[in-house]
């Protein structure tokens, strides 16, 4: 699905990713944890193709294609989805209209006819149930005045509508109450299959109780310094990052 080799990236002369290696196979769920500022969102942005970041080395293969050669919109249409840590607001554009545009752009790319109003409505109803999102939210302007939790839920709803092959969730759990967390996790689990994969960025072990990952990685200072199974997350929860920082320092000395 995704193969990242020695990925290096910087922003405004500041080196942030310093050689990331990561392989995600179809059907796998990977979790990325790591202290604030370690580069998690940067990694997500580079994968999604944000231009502010300059890739200075390494390669990314996505489903047999050179991801770095694709425009952000083509990456999306190839099946890469990013649930933003901070979803943006677009006044005057209804959420429904926005999602419909996105869905039909993707269909066009795949050589399919656009969904007509009835088909679209049917799919929407179905997915709305999945993430328990309210109709009234979807007729409002995209993310405008949405609460933090509503924005996150809307990200998962869009994910459900777009059915990506690889979904990157950047701290989708932060700002969610317990019930919402469970709903979002259920949504992800419903979509989970042997054909698609998830990269879940989180600070909390709690989410991983609901979305059980196959692998957990620790990102620190622009590198993946530990990889393991879900037990690694439990260990981090217990001990914090200090022990890893200490180990990394020892190794680099």
């Amino acid at each position: 699905m995704l193969k990242i080799e020695n990925l290096q990236a910087r922003i405004e002369e500041k080196e942030i990713l310093k050689g990331i290696n990561l392989e995600i196979k179809p059907g796998e769920v990977h979790a990325i944890m790591g202290p604030n500022g370690s580069g998690k969102s940067t990694l997500a942005s580079v994968l999604a193709g944000r231009e502010d970041y300059e890739v200075t080395g390494g390669s990314i293969d996505f489903l047999g294609k050179d991801l770095l050669e694709l425009s952000p919109e083509d990456r999306a249409k190839e099946g890469l989805f990013l649930a933003f840590q901070y979803p943006v607001e677009i006044p005057g554009v209804s959420t429904t209209n926005f999602i419909k545009t996105a869905v039909n752009e993707k269909r066009k790319y795949q050589g399919l006819d656009p969904l007509d109003a009835a088909q679209f409505l049917r799919t929407m109803k179905e997915k709305m149930k999945l993430v328990q999102i309210d109709q009234s939210l979807l007729s409002r302007s995209l993310n405008e005045g949405f609460s933090g939790g509503e924005k996150k839920r809307n990200e998962i709803f869009q994910m459900a509508m777009l059915e990506p092959k690889l979904a990157i969730l950047d701290e989708t759990d932060s700002g969610l109450d317990i019930d919402a967390l469970r709903i979002v996790a259920n949504g992800v689990n419903e979509l989970r299959s042997s054909n698609n994969s998830f990269l879940v960025v989180t600070h909390y072990q709690r989410l991983l109780d609901y979305i059980v990952p196959d692998f957990v990685h620790v990102l620190y200072n622009g590198r993946i310094v530990r990889s393991g199974t879900k037990e690694l997350a439990l260990e981090l929860e217990e001990k914090g990052y200090d022990f890893i920082k200490a180990e990394v320092e020892k190794e680099t000395v």
Binding site: S71, T101, A102, E105
Partner: peptide, 20 residues
């Protein structure tokens, strides 16, 4: 960028935003 990430190219995104 948010629009791009949803598969909407820049020209269409601008059209969407100004119409909004």
């Amino acid at each position: 960028f948010y629009c791009n990430q949803r598969g909407i190219d820049t020209e269409t995104a601008v059209a969407l935003i100004i119409n909004g």
